[in-house]
Amino acid sequence: MPVAKNLRSIGRRVVSAVWRVGLATRFFLLTLAYSGTSFRRFHLTIKELFSTGVMSLIIIIVAGLFVGMVLGLQGYETLKRYGSESALGVMVALGLVRELGPVVAALLFASRAGSAMTAEIGLMKATEQITAMEMMAVNPIARIVAPRFWAGVISMPLLAAMFSAVGVFGGYFVGVIQIGVDEGSFWSQMQAAVDFREDILNGVIKSFVFGTVVTVIALFEGYDAPPTAEGVSGATTRTVVTSSLAILMLDFILTAIMFRGN
């Protein structure tokens, strides 16, 4: 019976997916429970901040600049038709602060820092470093996972803010310096339309949520990876795919909650 067989394999996949969600949640709660070390010995977290945050700086800044420049160019072409080029600043800033900053920065973060985290922890597991740590009576979740988690959670909003800030300058560069939109109206209309609480803080909250989710997925996939070369490479791919999907879905949900009725 091929139909029954297919149904059964679908069912099995669904069950195992739900199972993994449960496992990941327990892993997340364990990480929170064992987070004391990350703050008591903050230099552990600082070390991870370097490899997640600082190492992602260049890609975030370059990407932010170009995204802002594209927004400036496209926005100008569209707004010109309605004679409202002066709203270019509004368009660039709102697009970046509300959506593109948090989302694109999180996607880049997932593929730059998230995949590196998964590969590193997966390899640590494959080379028995995690078992070794357990045998030394040191909890690997407290010592390895939690500092990386907090580094991810802290760096994501900062990276998203830098992405948006650089992007606004990219839009300014193309719109004002290259094309010649009026500088005064570019900034003043932007300031009039972008609200600190409504737009900027909500963007920060978004990137905070994305940072948490991406980091948990990356760490869980690494910790859960089969200790082989294929296991680690598969886990790395899954980190990028799963966290990208999670970012986009969560973005829709958060946007619906935050900006409804405006």
Binding site: L123, M124, T127, E128, Q129, T131, A132, M135, M136, A137
Partner: peptide, 17 residues
Amino acid sequence: AMRRKMGMLFQFGALFT
């Protein structure tokens, strides 16, 4: 507490990379 009194050498050393 017991593991602190034990030492274990792993197959390929398992040094923290």
